[in-house]
Write a protein that binds this DNA or RNA. Structure first.
Lengths: 107, 107
DNA sequence: TCGCTCCATAGCTATAGGTTTATCCATAGC
DNA sequence: GCTATGGATAAACCTATAGCTATGGAGCGA
């Protein structure tokens, strides 16, 4: 089984891809051409990365004539936040258990 | 330059590695042998992944006789939280700008 | 000292995936 | 209809890396 976290981590692991997503977050909707200009890679690479980002739900595409506009879908980051919270939660509960133990020992 | 986010995303992108980190978060400190039992991969692979996790600051090791105990370092997740917040922040500010524009247009 | 256990390292192979070039499709302009 | 442009797809290449086995080395017990 492939979890949502797995998809997100793998998708965001590539620097080029993450940079594309960051630009869409910072600057809002952009066409493939506009994204390619400062991406440092060729247009096919940009298209492919956008496809992967789309598959992960991190971006949305809107067709207008012969150009495609992409925009960030921030909600897709939710599983990432959830995962981080979960890990922190486990840590916290173990910390609480330790605190409890120390209190009991103190009595 | 290799940012902290890059390191974290790449490190956590591998399922085996992430599973190891999750177990350390859930169950606390564990030896390499204990981790290897349910990892589904060989011991050298576990050692290698633990090394990468350590390099990313996600785990800490403690030597005791011939066994090595590993534990999760939750603080290392901070750059991840920061990055997510930053992305959300950009989105929010663009949203605010839009809201502002709509208010002005409404007047 | 001699084995035995625990972990790390080295060497190797195989596969995943990022990049490029070439090409195709659809749309816009003339 | 013809050409040019924006974007997507295909094929080929190549690097990175996850996995294995084999081995080394350090601590423990007899």
């Amino acid at each position: 089984m492939s979890t949502a976290q797995d998809m997100l981590f793998r998708t965001l692991a590539d620097p080029t891809r993450r940079a594309l997503f960051e630009r869409l977050c910072r600057e809002g909707e952009k066409t493939v051409g506009a994204l390619t200009e400062r991406a440092g890679v060729s247009q096919p690479v940009v298209s492919k990365h956008l496809g992967i980002l789309k598959q992960a739900g991190l971006v949305r595409d809107r067709h207008e004539g012969r150009q495609t506009h992409y925009s960030a879908q921030l909600g897709a980051l939710a599983p990432l936040v959830d995962w981080t919270s979960e890990m922190a939660g486990f840590w916290q509960s173990r910390f609480d258990a330790l605190e409890n133990l120390l209190k009991r020992m103190d009595q």
